[in-house]
């Protein structure tokens, strides 16, 4: 479904990604793990068109998309839950969700999807007229996830959805990720919480300072000694 082929991304003199290749197949949850500054967010930002790779290709459903502007990437079915939630703080919960559906025109479908999100996250419904900036961290994360679902993506990119949340909420977020996947959305999940990520993913990649260090099935990686030492704290 998604193929990244040898992309390089530089921020000025900083080489954030060097010859990174990865693949996501339809229906999978693929985890991308790595330390701070490894280039995980940069990978997702390149897919979404927020940064342009200096070389290499990004192919989605057979189409080269590395020159697409971000709004075109959303239109072809890729949306992102950005790092740090990034809800629009001065807009209401409802407006945030409506913005997630910006690329769609089917009013009835949008309404239905908002209702579905409220069913899944009742706390958002109670707060639908409240500015998103007044929500708690966990609620903001639910909103960011709901908002990303509003475009009805085929592929959902999630950048550290468990960041800064209490352990109980972390568990809940991972359950939600699994649920979203089970309803037919493919997921590329960036996480620092490698243990959790590997427990729900089918496959995983490990990024180290901008390059791919390892890849394989989630199970393999979870049992790998190096991974255990570096990311699972054994």
């Amino acid at each position: 479904m998604l193929n990244i082929e040898n992309i390089d991304v530089n921020y000025g003199a900083i080489r954030a990604l060097v010859q990174v290749s990865l693949e996501v197949n339809e229906g999978e949850i693929v985890a991308l793990i790595g330390a701070n500054g490894a280039g995980k967010s940069t990978t997702l930002r390149s897919i979404s068109g927020l940064v342009k790779p200096q070389s290499g290709k990004i192919i989605f459903e057979g189409k080269e998309i590395h020159n697409f502007p971000p709004h075109k990437v959303v239109e072809i079915g890729i949306s992102q839950v950005p790092e740090g939630r990034r809800v629009f703080p001065l807009m209401t919960v409802l407006e945030n969700l409506e913005l997630g559906a910006f690329s769609r025109k089917d009013r009835a479908g949008i309404k239905e999807d908002i209702n579905n999100i409220f069913l899944r996250f009742p706390r958002l419904e109670e707060r639908k007229q409240q500015p998103a900036g007044t929500l708690s961290g966990g609620e903001q994360q639910m909103l960011a996830i709901g908002r990303a679902l509003m475009s009805r993506p085929k592929l959902l990119l999630m950048d550290e959805p468990s960041m800064g949340l209490a352990p109980m909420l972390v568990q809940e977020i991972f359950n939600i990720v699994k649920e979203i996947n089970q309803t037919g959305t493919t997921i590329l999940l960036v996480e620092q919480n490698a243990r959790m990520a590997l427990s729900i993913a089918n496959r995983a990649y490990v990024l180290e300072t901008g390059s791919l260090a390892m890849s394989g099935s989630a199970k393999e990686l979870a049992e790998n000694e190096e991974v255990q030492k570096a990311y699972l704290g054994h």
Binding site: S48, L50, P69, P70, H71, R86, E95, L99, F102
Partner: peptide
């Protein structure tokens, strides 16, 4: 309006507005 909301979103968070499918240009 739809455009008005997109303007507010873009002014609050430019990159995230683009991630919503808003053509920021």
């Amino acid at each position: 309006t739809r455009i008005g909301k997109a303007m507010r979103a873009t002014s609050q968070d430019y990159d995230t507005a683009a991630l919503m499918g808003i053509n920021v240009n």
